[in-house]
């Protein structure tokens, strides 16, 4: 389904989504992030600092509440979320491509009911990147494109005074149907304009690194090389790169106790760059330095994920590069690994 939406009609489309929770990018506290949309949605955003993964995989998820007195039967109350349909506007194609990768992680071997309870209700309305929103974008080097539909339910393209809106999935088309009065039919001219805009978008300069297909071998070849230690030398071991990443999914599980015997078992985001991530109770740590942890982050995305799922677990959003406090740059790491 292809339609045209005049920019001033976006508000009408959003208003038609009654019963849904609607989120869109908002500029607050000097950063773009997703926020609940009321009325208008500002789609002039670069990329949101947090990725869209949090809608299905929030930073904190309560698995169940427990109450247990010794000698008595513990009561366990599962807290599976029951969200309303949630429509997210302004999803950049890199974040869109992240979601099928997360779907794989939360489906393979065992299906994760908490993730899927949210994911099944999620409708992603993408916005093509007519120009790179950061100097560290590398979606094309990572196998994607600034106008990729992968993982999105709807793809919008800014044509100046209007949006071209393409329904990609049945879920997306349904959301377009609900706002049908806001749309006009797309003409042949509109289609030509979209094709032209997408073609121009793909020609915008982006970061590059060596041949994507050759990278697994390059990592294997350099696995024991000193370059990991060198490149991680100034890493401070914080969680920015992984917490902002649209595909990093590592988590911790803890019992949070509110009073004796009573509390919640909680999943929270975790990060392979924290020293305690792999620390055994004995004090032994299989990845006990920053070089090994950088290697893990890069290998997970560009080697292990490829070996297990035949695709990269990085979509080139560039957040980990732009937001790193000390200039650790996954594109530069890959380039160096490719050439070593």
């Amino acid at each position: 389904m292809e339609k045209i939406l005049a920019k001033e009609k976006l508000r009408d489309w959003v208003a038609s989504l009654q019963g849904c929770e609607v989120h869109g990018p908002a500029f607050a506290d000097a950063v773009w992030n997703y926020a609940k949309a009321e009325g208008d949605i500002d789609l002039r955003h670069t990329n949101t600092v947090g990725s869209v993964k949090a809608f299905a995989f929030p930073q904190r998820e309560v698995f169940f509440r427990f109450e247990h007195k010794r000698g008595e039967r513990p009561s366990l109350v599962p807290t599976l979320p029951e969200p309303r349909p949630t429509v997210v506007f302004g999803v950049r194609p890199c974040d869109g491509r992240g979601m099928p990768r997360n779907d794989t992680v939360f489906s393979k071997e065992f299906k994760d009911p908490y993730y899927w309870a949210r994911r099944d209700k999620l409708i992603l309305v993408g916005l093509a990147c007519i120009e790179p929103h950061s100097p560290n974008c590398f979606c094309q080097a990572a196998g994607g494109s600034p106008c990729s539909e992968e993982g999105l339910d709807i793809l919008m393209t800014d044509l100046g005074d209007r949006y071209h809106v393409r329904g990609v999935t049945a879920k997306g088309i349904e959301v377009m149907e609900r706002g049908r009065d806001a749309f006009k039919e797309a003409s042949g001219g509109d289609q030509a304009a979209v094709a032209k805009a997408h073609e121009a978008a793909c020609k915008e300069p982006q970061r590059t690194f060596g041949d994507l297909v050759a990278i697994p071998d390059a990592i294997r070849r350099n696995f024991e090389a000193p370059l990991w230690d060198e490149m991680a030398r100034h890493c401070i071991g914080c969680g920015i790169c992984t917490f902002l990443c649209p595909t990093c999914h590592c988590f911790d599980i803890n019992d949070e106790v509110s009073s004796p015997g009573k509390g919640e078992r909680v999943r929270t985001w975790d990060n392979c760059q924290f020293p305690d991530f792999t620390l055994h109770t004995s004090g032994h740590n299989p990845r006990d330095n920053l070089g090994m942890r950088l290697r893990q982050r890069v290998s997970h995305k560009f080697l292990y994920f490829v070996e297990n799922h035949q695709t990269q677990q990085c979509t080139g959003c560039g957040r980990c590069i732009s937001e790193c406090p000390v200039g650790i740059d996954i594109a530069a790491v890959l380039e160096r690994v490719s050439q070593s």
Partner: peptide, 19 residues
């Protein structure tokens, strides 16, 4: 072999040895 584990279901990401 053993590694630190949290989920047991191949998702939490910490017990990996290579892939």
């Amino acid at each position: 072999i053993e590694n630190k584990m949290k989920c047991g279901v191949g998702k939490c990401g910490r017990c990996n040895v290579g892939k």
